[in-house]
Design a binder for these strands. Structure first.
Lengths: 237, 237
DNA sequence: CCTACCGATCGGTAGG
DNA sequence: CCTACCGATCGGTAGG
């Protein structure tokens, strides 16, 4: 399965490596840099991260070897350990990166929504905000480049308790904007369930889509969003 | 972690082993039976199956070694292979056993429900049947002895395509009674979504509970069922 | 079902 | 980031 290894290293950029200063303190051994391989460090690290996310999602953490990841990133078997100190650290990095991107996207979309309300117009209603949150969540789970969050969702058993606690903080940051929206929908009678259980059940319905959704056939993410909205919310009164 | 191994073999039953004839054809090698260990085969096999289900659920398939399973069943490391020809076969057996039990329970409950309708009375309504299906589903996912179906749900990647196809047949047997119920609820306007997507989203909401439900605190399975019913169904008209 | 064992694979590292 | 390597673990099996 090693195949022809096809080294797809990007052409060496001219001049001193851009990321060299930033990561200088992280070198495992105090060896003078300058060799060819040291250039473009940030990109190589990202490539390992992306390859790992893809493989962890498709095959699972324990079924993926660090050699698989190295090969997918066009490296030799020991090289991922230059960027990450262990396989577990790599898994955690995938999850953390996924959460940071997800939170950033969600906050940006919410800010855009508020801004788009012309002055004098009332703020977007709770149902509209819920639709945006759900639509973005599907994008993060199922859209292009969406390997990181599914790995986080389905490999929680494989990280340490300390790492889980750190992730939980990020997760509550992600979930924070959902609470007032669900609360408002409860108050106006369009959500007919205890808010806490509703949140868990709703996230379940969405997160489970990772198991069955096929981008190449069936509903679009917009149609999925519509279906979810109709399933969860009663008629407006 | 091997610890004291605490061999908890059950006392040897008197007389010829009950299961000996039934499994005679399955012996890996044509060796004369009679040794002490051969007694009570069915129970030992079930013990391996239960231990495997428990460990696969808690740690995942690939993070569980056959040695772990053997120890949990009070055996030596090679002995699980006397009952199952490979680790993968053991995983599949866990899933299949889970589906058979789940289907049997569901059919029994539905039969009971129909029977309990006194003669002359109309059949139970669709909402009542959905409640029963959901309540039973929670039981299978979260109730006592509920390791088998969660393993099936969360280890699908670890079985072969052929095994997945076989399981899919059992799964459609399980899902069969859900379709007419959801259909009826759609027709009367209490479910406001395309039936196919509604089914996927509903199962997602239920199945995800494996990730967060804690039997020792929080809602009971009845309360969970109520929350799900209210979330999915609009007011009766 | 146990004993004793094998070959393969895996995460990880020293040194450059 | 590569080369060369190590120790540990794992699934599985022969033979009784």
């Amino acid at each position: 399965m090693e195949a022809s290894v096809a080294r797809t290293r990007s052409p060496a950029p001219p001049g001193p490596p851009a990321g060299a200063v930033a990561v200088a303190g992280k070198r495992p051994r105090g060896r003078p840099r300058k060799t060819v391989q040291d250039r473009d460090d940030g990109n190589r690290r990202q490539e390992v991260l992306r390859s790992a996310a893809k493989l962890f999602r498709r095959k699972g953490f324990h079924a993926t070897s660090t050699r698989d990841i190295a090969a997918a990133a066009g490296m030799r078997s020991g090289s991922p350990f230059y960027h990450f100190k262990s396989k577990g650290a790599l898994l955690y990095a995938v999850m953390e990166e996924g959460m940071r991107v997800a939170i950033a996207r969600q906050e940006r979309l919410l800010a855009d929504l508020l801004e788009s309300a012309r002055p004098g117009e009332s703020a977007p209603d709770a149902a509209g905000r819920l639709r945006l949150l759900i639509r973005n969540h599907f994008d993060i789970l199922l859209g292009p480049g969406s390997d990181f969050i599914p790995v986080m969702l389905y490999e929680a058993r494989s990280i340490t308790a300390r790492q889980r606690a750190l992730l939980a903080q990020l997760q509550s940051g992600y979930e924070a904007p959902w609470a007032p929206v669900l609360q408002a929908l409860c108050a106006c009678g369009r959500l007919r369930t205890d808010v806490k259980l509703a949140r868990l059940l709703v996230f379940g319905a969405l997160n489970w889509s990772v198991q069955w959704y096929d981008r190449r056939k069936g509903a679009s993410l917009d149609e999925l969003t519509d279906a979810a909205m109709h399933l969860f919310l009663g008629e407006p009164q």
